[in-house]
Computed example of a mutant assay.
Amino acid sequence: MKILVDESILYAKRLFSYLGCVETITSKAISTSSIMLADALIVNSVTRVDNALLNGSRIQFVGTVTSGTDHIDIDWLVEEGIEFSAAEGCNAIAVVEYVFSALLWLAQRDNFSLSEKTIGIVGVGNIGSCLHHRLSAFGVRTLLCDPLLAEKGEPGNWYSLETLINQVDVLSLHTPLTRTGRYATWHLIDEQILAALPDHCILINTCRGEVIDNTALFRILEKGKSFRVILDVWELIPSLPFLLSYIDIGTAHIAGYTLEGKARGTAQIFNAYSKFLGNTMRINSKSLLPFPLLERIRMHGKLNEEVLRLLVHSIYNICHDDIRLRRFSGLSSEFDYLRKNYYHRREWSSLFVETSDRTSADKLMQLGFSSRLYTL
Results as ranks from 00 to 15, higher is better:
residue 116 E to I: 10
residue 77 L to Y: 08
residue 36 M to K: 12
residue 219 R to L: 14
residue 181 G to L: 02
residue 328 F to G: 05
residue 94 A to Y: 06
residue 254 I to P: 01
residue 201 C to M: 13
residue 155 P to K: 09
residue 329 S to P: 01
residue 52 A to S: 15
residue 79 E to D: 12
residue 264 R to G: 00
residue 247 I to E: 06
residue 307 V to G: 01
residue 356 S to P: 12
residue 223 K to M: 14
residue 93 I to C: 10
residue 84 F to S: 06
residue 317 N to S: 11
residue 209 G to M: 09
residue 64 T to R: 05
residue 161 L to P: 03
residue 222 E to A: 11
residue 14 R to P: 08
residue 47 T to R: 09
residue 135 L to H: 03
residue 163 T to R: 14
residue 130 C to S: 14
residue 276 F to C: 05
residue 239 S to E: 15
residue 258 T to L: 07
residue 243 L to A: 02
residue 196 A to S: 15
residue 155 P to L: 06
residue 22 V to W: 07
residue 326 R to G: 03
residue 5 V to W: 02
residue 331 L to K: 14
residue 161 L to M: 10
residue 136 S to V: 05
residue 126 N to F: 12
residue 170 V to Y: 08
residue 294 L to K: 14
residue 249 I to Y: 07
residue 218 F to L: 14
residue 33 S to E: 12
residue 279 N to K: 09
residue 269 I to R: 03
residue 240 L to E: 01
residue 78 V to E: 14
residue 37 L to Y: 15
residue 25 I to Q: 02
residue 325 L to V: 04
residue 340 K to S: 14
residue 171 L to F: 05
residue 325 L to R: 06
residue 146 D to Q: 05
residue 223 K to I: 11
residue 340 K to I: 15
residue 165 I to C: 10
residue 200 H to F: 10
residue 372 R to Q: 15
residue 121 I to G: 00
residue 187 H to W: 08
residue 325 L to C: 05
residue 354 E to W: 11
residue 98 Y to R: 01
residue 80 E to C: 13
residue 2 K to W: 09
residue 376 L to D: 12
residue 143 L to C: 10
residue 222 E to V: 03
residue 151 E to Y: 12
residue 150 A to F: 09
residue 288 L to M: 05
residue 328 F to H: 11
residue 171 L to C: 04
residue 15 L to S: 03
residue 245 S to E: 13
residue 44 N to V: 12
residue 70 D to T: 04
residue 259 L to C: 09
residue 120 G to L: 08
residue 277 L to R: 14
residue 102 A to C: 13
residue 55 N to R: 14
residue 364 L to S: 03
residue 280 T to I: 11
residue 363 K to Q: 14
residue 329 S to F: 07
residue 241 P to T: 03
